[in-house]
C-alpha cells in the first residue's frame, strides 16, 4: 500500500494554489448533493443555507460546532499521526471507546478524589487505555508483520462488546434504559471555559494536542524520524532509524490521541460511559484526515469545516426532514474531488 497521495510533500508554495482545489472540490461536491436534494423535491438553496450557516446564526450553534470540533480533530489526528510514519490507523473508534472506558474506570473507582487530582487521572486513564488498545495492533505489526489496517479495524468490533459489558455488567445505571454507567466523580468532570452556552475545557486540550503534534513532528528528533520513516522507510532504515519500532510508536501515539477523544467525551460531554458515545466520529475523523491529505497542521482547519457541516446536517434533519446522512456523502465526495485534483495536476505535468 503506497501513501503517495498522502505523504506530506514539503512546503506549500503558495496558499492560493493549495486552497484552489479545495474550493473547487467543495463546490462540485455541493453541486452533486444539490442535484440529489433537488431531485427529491426539497428546496436546494434552503438546504445549502442550513448546512453552511446554522453554526453562525446563534451562539448555541457556534458552541455546538466547537464541541463537535473536539472529537473530529482528535480522531483525525489519531489517523494522520500514524500516517506520518506511513501507517494506517483505522482503529480510532476502538481507541476512543477504550479511552472512554479508561476514563470511566478511573472516574468511578476514584470518585471521591478532589478535582485537582481526579481530572488529570481521568484524562491520563483515557490516554493510556487508548495507547494500549493501539499497542496491540502495533505489537502484532512489529512481531508478526500483520497489516495494521485489519487489526485496528477488528479491534473496533472488540471494543463494541467491551463497552457494552462495562456499561451493563460492571457499573450499570439501572435508571438509564440504555447501556450506561453511573456518573464519574464530580472532580473528574471537565470544567467549562464558557458558561452559557457551555463549552467544556476539552476544546483547549484539543488545541494543545494539535500544538503538541505540530511541534513534535516538526521540531523534535523523534518526530523527524517519524516523518522520515513515512517519507521513505528504506532510506530511513539506511540512516539507522529503527523503522519497525517507529511504526509501533506512531500507532501508539495515534491511539493515545484517540483515547483522549474518548476521555473528553466522558469527562466533558456525558460525565458517564454510554454505549454508542463514539457516534460516527471515526468516519468523520478519517474523512477529515484524508481531506487534509494527512497534513497534521491542516487537520484542525478541515475539522472545523466538517464540524460546520455536521451541525448543519442535524439542523437539516430537524427543520427540513432531509436525512443527515446526506452530509456524509457530501464529505466523501469532497475527499474524492480533493484527491482527484492531485491527479489532474499530475496530468498537467505541474
Amino acid at each position: 500500500m503506497t501513501t503517495g497521495v498522502l505523504s506530506p510533500t514539503g512546503r506549500i508554495r503558495s496558499w492560493t494554489r493549495a486552497v484552489f482545489p479545495y474550493v473547487l472540490a467543495i463546490l462540485v461536491a455541493f453541486a452533486v448533493a444539490g442535484a440529489f436534494i433537488g431531485s427529491m423535491g426539497f428546496n436546494v438553496l434552503r438546504a445549502y443555507e442550513t448546512i453552511l450557516f446554522t453554526s453562525f446564526r446563534t451562539p448555541y450553534g457556534f458552541i455546538q460546532t466547537l464541541t463537535k470540533f473536539v472529537p473530529l480533530t482528535l480522531q483525525a489526528l489519531a489517523f494522520t499521526v500514524p500516517l506520518t510514519a506511513g501507517k494506517f490507523n483505522i482503529g480510532g473508534e476502538g481507541q476512543l471507546i477504550a479511552g472512554a472506558i479508561g476514563a470511566s474506570v478511573v472516574g468511578i473507582l476514584l470518585a471521591g478524589l478532589p478535582g485537582v487530582l481526579l481530572l488529570p487521572l481521568v484524562l491520563l486513564g483515557s490516554v493510556i487505555a487508548g495507547a494500549l488498545w493501539a499497542a496491540i495492533p502495533g505489537w502484532l505489526l512489529y512481531r508478526f508483520r500483520i497489516s495494521e489496517v485489519l487489526t485496528t479495524v477488528l479491534m473496533n468490533f472488540i471494543s463494541f462488546s467491551l463497552i457494552n459489558y462495562v456499561a451493563t455488567e460492571m457499573w450499570p445505571d439501572p435508571a438509564a434504559g440504555h447501556p450506561t454507567t453511573v456518573p464519574i466523580g464530580k472532580g473528574g468532570m471537565l470544567p467549562n471555559i464558557i458558561a452559557r452556552p457551555p463549552l467544556h475545557m476539552g476544546f483547549l486540550l484539543t488545541i494543545l494536542a494539535v500544538a503538541f503534534v505540530y511541534i513534535y513532528t516538526t521540531r523534535s528528533v523523534g518526530g523527524y524520524e517519524l516523518v522520515a520513516t513515512g517519507a521513505n522507510p528504506r532510506a530511513a532504515h539506511v540512516y539507522g532509524i529503527d523503522v519497525r519500532k517507529l511504526s509501533v510508536l506512531a500507532l501508539v501515539l495515534g491511539g493515545a490521541l484517540g483515547g483522549l477523544s474518548g476521555g473528553i467525551e466522558v469527562a466533558g460531554v456525558h460525565h458517564r460511559l454510554i454505549e454508542g458515545l463514539q457516534s460516527n466520529y471515526l468516519a468523520l475523523g478519517i474523512l477529515t484526515g484524508l481531506i487534509a491529505k494527512g497534513n497534521n497542521l491542516a487537520v484542525p482547519f478541515v475539522a472545523f469545516f466538517i464540524a460546520i457541516l455536521e451541525v448543519g446536517a442535524s439542523a437539516l434533519q430537524r427543520t427540513m426532514m432531509i436525512p443527515g446522512e446526506m452530509v456524509i456523502i457530501v464529505e466523501a465526495l469532497i475527499v474524492l474531488f480533493v484527491l482527484l485534483s492531485d491527479v489532474v495536476k499530475v496530468g498537467e505535468g505541474a
Binding site: 503506497t2 503517495g4 483505522i90 468516519a283 475527499v335 484527491l339 482527484l340 491527479v343
Partner: peptide, 16 residues
C-alpha cells in the same frame, strides 16, 4: 488514484 485511500473513501460513502 491510491487504491487503499479510494477504498476507504468508498467504504465510508457506501456505509453512509
Amino acid at each position: 488514484m491510491d487504491q487503499f485511500v479510494i477504498g476507504l473513501a468508498l467504504f465510508f460513502a457506501t456505509a453512509g
